[in-house]
Every structure is written in structure tokens, then in C-alpha cells.
């Protein structure tokens, strides 16, 4: 359990984000929830790539003769971080536009489309 604490932290992050999406009533809070899930998943990928007692996979000035952590998860995480900021920017822009037209950010009132 304690050895897998990073994974548990990941799960807590994802859970917090999902909780925010399900129960919080503010559009920007929902965006915060999405960012939290993103952070959790990014941490998950990096955690998967870690190798005990290893160094970063960069040969420039590295301490010699050691194992290196896995590079692929880092590449994936880079991609997913930039995707995350793109998503966040679009979500927030749309939320601002909703505010412009509706005058509110409450999810109970932002529901002209229903039924």
C-alpha cells in the first residue's frame, strides 16, 4: 500500500476531479475539476515511467553509469499536458460566452436545452 502511494494519489486526484464534475454547481469549478483529472492522469503516466535509483533519460552531463527512467511516459505526458491546456482554454472561453448570454454560471440555470 505505502509502496503504491503515488498511484493512490493519482486515484485521489481523479476522484476529486470527478466529484467536482458531479456535484459542483459552477461552470468554472467544473473546469477546475477537468484540470484536476488531467493532473492526476499526467502524474499517473509519469509514475508508471519511474524506475528506482535511475536518472533522467538525458545524456548531457548525466552522472554516468546509472539506469535511466523510461522515456515514453514522459513523451506521452508532454503531449497530454499541452492537450490539457488546449482543452482548458476552450472550456473557459465557452464558459465566458455562456456568461455573456445567460448572465450566470450556475449549472441549474444554464439549461435552456433540455427535454
Amino acid at each position: 500500500m505505502i509502496g503504491n502511494l503515488p498511484y493512490v494519489a493519482v486515484v485521489i486526484f481523479v476522484g476529486l476531479g470527478i466529484y467536482t464534475l458531479m456535484f459542483k454547481k459552477n461552470l468554472i469549478k467544473i473546469a477546475i475539476g477537468v484540470v484536476l483529472i488531467e493532473n492526476g492522469v499526467n502524474l499517473f503516466l509519469i509514475t508508471l515511467g519511474y524506475r528506482k535509483g535511475a536518472i533522467a533519460p538525458i545524456y548531457t552531463y548525466a552522472p554516468s553509469g546509472q539506469a535511466m527512467v523510461l522515456p515514453t511516459p514522459q513523451a506521452l505526458t508532454l503531449t497530454s499536458i499541452v492537450i490539457g491546456i488546449a482543452t482548458t482554454a476552450l472550456i473557459l472561453s465557452v464558459a465566458m460566452m455562456i456568461y455573456k448570454h445567460y448572465g450566470t454560471l450556475d449549472t441549474d440555470e444554464v439549461r435552456r436545452l433540455k427535454g
Binding site: 464534475l21 458531479m22 449549472t107 436545452l113 433540455k114 427535454g115
Partner: peptide, 17 residues
Amino acid sequence: LVKMHTGNINDYSGWII
């Protein structure tokens, strides 16, 4: 059925979960 379609974003994500 119509009541279920609240149009509330929390419910959308809630149903997924």
C-alpha cells in the same frame, strides 16, 4: 423520462459515472 433530461451538466457527468 422527460424529467430525467434535466439539461444539467452535473447530471450528464453523473450518469456517465
